[in-house]
Every structure is written in C-alpha cells, then in structure tokens.
C-alpha cells in the first residue's frame, strides 16, 4: 500500500503586481492587478512504506508548495492527496499525529531550554504519556548520539547539534512519515555526512518513510533510493536512483594527456568535449562504445596520463532541468 498518494495535484498562486511609479502604487491600492503563478501543475506520484524519497528541484519549482499541501498547511486547488489514507485537507489534526516535520530554516525548539525539556514539550504536544516519552528520549539519545549535550540549552549548541535535536523532536511521537525540508542547509561537509548517516540509521531501525527535499546532491545520493525531480511545477523525472545513475552513468568522461597530437572526430558513441591538441576530454557512451574501444582510438602508447570518471550527479540533475526548459 502506498503511504503517500498524490493524484493530479495543482496549485496556482496569485501574486500582486506592483506597477512602476507613483500612479502605479496608487492604482495597486485601489484595484490591484494579479499575476497567476502555477506553482504546481497536475502532479502525481506515490511513495511506498519505508522509502526514503528525494524530492528535488531548483528554487521556485514547487517543492515547498507540495510539502505544505502534503502536511495540510495549504489546500490544493485541484487533485487529491492521501497521506496514510488521510486527506490532509479534511483531517489536518488527525494527520498531524502521524507525521513529523523538520523545516531546516524554521526552528521549532525553544532555544533557552535543554533538548531534554524540548522533547518533553513535544511529547506533550502529541499527548504521549510521560513514561513513553522518557523511553523514546532514551532511544533517540543513543541513536542520534546526543548524550553529551542533552542537558545544554539549545542556544549554546552548534547548528549540527541543533538539527539533530530538531529531528528527534519531530520523531518523539513516532510518526510514520517524516518530512525533511532542507535538513542539511548551512552545515559543513563533515556534519552533513554525520546527519545523513543518522537519518539512514533511523530509517532502517524504525521503517519511517522519509520525504526529503534538498538542494544538496550529496543528501540525495547518499540517502535516497528514489528521486522525484520537479521543475516549473511538473514532475520531470520519477525514477529509482539506480536507474537515474544507470541512464546517465553509462556515459563516462575520459580525460587524457597525450604525447602526440591526435586527430579525432565525433563518431558513434563518442563526443569530443574539449580538444586542445595534447589535452583531450571526450564523453563515451558505453552502451554504444566500450571504454577499451575509446582508448584504442586514442592510441594507448601515446597516453601520458588518463582519468576516467562518471558524470557528477549534480551535472546530471542540472542537465535534466535544462532539458525540461527546452
């Protein structure tokens, strides 16, 4: 059974247009003009239990709008949403007991209190009995390795420590789905890595479905098995991470430094990206041409240095955005 079911979802915003000059601003007070922005256009997807799904797209693609509709903050104009078989529009409160949310940029914790007191507070918000809260706090303290600072006021914690506490606070009521909106924003690489490991561990242990939005390709690559890419309000790709990589990873970049000049032209399966005489950069489509073939073409005896690499995921994704724009 799908945990999240989204069917032909649409949301349009009206944005007040401000005309130029004095006349314009007076006009906009009396009779404002609006521009319609279709934030989300007819999107459909499903998320299965226990999945970690990445929901990505450039700024203004409709990610936040979709998350807000899934959590009941915003109502859709058209289409249906079912999260755990609950319609967020009709039973916001009931849904709230079942889901957790972490918005990377918005803090939910009381900064003058310790994480421990905060967790107790969230336990109370979700009507969890004291003993159960204590048990949960103990579990998560170990899982997320926060023993050291569980009694330090949140305002004295580092950003990475805080976000760990934010995540725990949203897990106290054992939600079945966790929405993570940009959880690693502003963190340094080491801390990011650490948070990812912890999220993964949590998913494994509790089978919590995780719906993640991020700008950070690392988050997606390390955490998710499935990716939904959204751009200009439509789903442009909904595929497994493996497929995504497979489709694009069959292309390799070969960079070679040569002893002698080679004359090479584009041919079946080979694209010249850069040719500076002694330095070459070519893309090889391994479905059509093997790497060995490509190296043969270059004449192996002439190669001084060679580097064969995958196309970075970041480039893959931005290619998908670009393609969509055309």
């Amino acid at each position: 059974m799908a945990i999240i079911e989204v069917n032909k979802l649409s949301k349009t915003f009206k944005v007040k247009l401000k005309e130029k000059g004095l006349k314009g601003s007076l006009k906009s007070i009396i009779k404002p003009k609006y521009k319609e922005i279709k934030a989300v256009k007819n999107i459909s997807f499903q998320v299965e239990k226990g999945e970690i799904i990445a929901f990505i797209g450039p700024n203004g693609a409709g990610k936040s709008t979709t998350i807000k509709m899934l959590t009941g903050i915003l109502y859709p104009d058209k289409g249906n949403i079912k999260v755990l078989d609950i319609d967020p529009r009709q039973e916001r409160k009931k849904l709230a007991y079942e889901i957790g949310t972490v918005f990377g940029q918005k803090e939910q914790l009381w900064t003058h209190l310790t994480p421990y007191d905060n967790f107790k507070f969230f336990g109370a918000i979700y009507d969890i009995p004291e003993s159960r809260v204590e048990k949960k706090i103990k579990e998560f303290t170990e899982l997320f390795e926060i023993e050291e600072f569980i009694n330090t006021p949140v305002r004295n914690l580092s950003l990475g420590q805080r976000i760990r506490c934010e995540i725990i606070a949203s897990l106290i009521h054992e939600p079945k789905v966790l929405f993570l909106d940009e959880p690693t924003i502003g963190l340094d690489p080491v801390v990011k890595e650490n948070i990812r490991t912890l999220i993964k561990r949590m998913n494994k242990e509790y089978k919590t479905t995780i719906f993640l939005t991020s700008h950070d390709v690392g988050d997606i690559e390390k955490l998710c098995k499935r990716v939904i890419i959204i751009n200009n309000g439509t789903v442009v790709l909904d595929d497994s991470m493996e497929n995504l990589k497979y489709h694009y990873l069959n292309k390799k970049i070969v960079e070679a430094k040569m002893k002698e000049k080679v004359n090479l032209d584009d041919e079946e399966g080979i694209t010249i990206l850069k040719d500076k005489g002694y330095n070459l950069k070519i893309e090889v489509d391994t479905k059509k041409r093997s790497i060995a073939d490509a190296i043969k073409l270059l004449n192996p005896d002439n190669i001084v240095d060679i580097n064969i690499s995958n196309i970075p995921l970041e480039d893959i994704i931005s290619n998908i955005y670009k393609k969509d724009r055309k």
Binding site: G72, I73, R92, Q108, D127
Partner: peptide, 9 residues
C-alpha cells in the same frame, strides 16, 4: 502560522 498548523493542537 505554518509551525502551528503541523501540530495536532
């Protein structure tokens, strides 16, 4: 208000 909208209170 968004913060309060995701709480069951």
């Amino acid at each position: 208000l968004d913060v309060f909208l995701v709480q069951p209170k």
